[in-house]
């Protein structure tokens, strides 16, 4: 078997991620950069615009199956969602239903709402949530891939968790409010955003996977994301608390009731626990956690979850 050097998911641009995730040459972009649908709101504030407004959407093949791909560019305005950017994501989710896609791959790399057009961004994220529910109701799984420089925060942190599966790298980060925001408002004693190890122990892939907020921990390698997404697509595994809502399936209520109990139990963790390290200690896991590679770590958690 041919093996090639890993290509970092984190360092790749949104376009390179799309290329690396799909079967070679299979990607067709919708409303691509040549159409120049840029943000009028950034322009009004004399801020730089991008030809694709920071998100690539289109369709292609994954293991010969038709999929819709959405990839946010974290380096453009922190992957933040504005009017055009959000409308492209919403349109792509709805088109997945039209083309009967086998799955949607949603590469989230975003701090949330774009402040330059904050109201438009907030409404857009709500519209993305509605469109995501519609895709799921049509039986199309949405798979979140989190491993970019911005992680998945703000409204996009919520969107990522609405997905049927959430794949995250060790370097990937997932949360609601970024550490900088918490530090600014609540002070450095609450959250020291410059303590990178602490930030990783709160928001990083390993602790997210530990708590069940992510489905699978991956190496920072596009091929690893591709393989895991293909496996998810084939229905090997779905998130426990994410029912496919085809109308109101009889078990949808029970599934969410079970998720409610699960989340209540987590919230009841000793109030003194404020660090991922304490969570691992509480589970009886020691220093070895930091050293385990993603495959080992997934196996370790799966054994405990059984």
């Amino acid at each position: 078997m041919m093996t090639s050097a890993p290509q970092s998911f984190r360092e790749a641009s949104a376009r390179l991620r799309v290329q690396g995730l799909l079967d070679a040459g299979s990607f067709t972009e919708w409303l691509g950069p040549a159409r120049r649908i840029t943000s009028p709101h950034l322009a009004a504030l004399d801020a730089p615009v991008s030809f694709d407004d920071g998100v690539v959407v289109g369709q292609g093949l994954l293991e010969a199956q038709l999929v819709v791909v959405i990839a946010q560019e974290g380096l453009f305005n922190g992957g933040a969602v504005g009017e055009v950017h959000g409308a492209k994501i919403r349109g792509a989710l709805l088109r997945a239903i039209e083309v009967r896609a086998r799955a949607v791959l949603l590469c989230v790399d975003s701090g949330g709402v774009r402040l330059h057009e904050a109201n438009a961004g907030l409404i857009a994220i709500s519209e993305i949530m509605r469109a995501l529910f519609a895709a799921q109701a049509a039986g199309i799984p949405v798979i979140a891939l989190v491993g970019g420089t911005c992680g998945a925060f703000g409204g996009m942190g919520i969107v990522a968790r609405l997905c049927d599966a959430l794949l995250i790298s060790e370097e990937g980060r997932l949360g609601l409010s970024g550490p900088e925001v918490i530090e600014t408002v609540k002070g450095v004693e609450e959250f020291d955003s410059r303590d990178r190890a602490l930030v990783w122990r709160i928001t990083g892939g390993k602790i997210r996977r530990t708590l069940g907020e992510a489905t699978l921990l991956l190496d920072d390698d596009i091929a690893a994301f591709r393989a895991a997404a293909a496996k998810e697509m084939m229905g090997s595994k779905t998130m426990g608390d994410s029912p496919r809502q085809r109308g109101l399936s009889p078990d949808a209520l029970q599934t969410l009731e079970a998720a409610q109990r699960h989340l209540e139990a987590r919230a009841a963790l000793d109030p003194g626990i404020r660090d991922g390290q304490q969570v691992w200690q509480h589970m009886g896991l020691g220093e070895e956690v930091a050293l385990m590679d993603p495959a080992e770590f997934n196996r370790c958690l799966e054994a405990r979850e059984r």
């Binding site: 376009r15 691509g32 950069p33 040549a34 730089p48 615009v49 991008s50 030809f51 560019e73 380096l75």
Partner: peptide, 18 residues
């Protein structure tokens, strides 16, 4: 063909070739 290279971020640029 058209091709987009680079990203608009501080100290950087994107170029669309057509």
């Amino acid at each position: 063909q058209t091709l987009l290279h680079g990203v608009v971020s501080s100290g950087n640029l994107e170029v669309l070739v057509e």
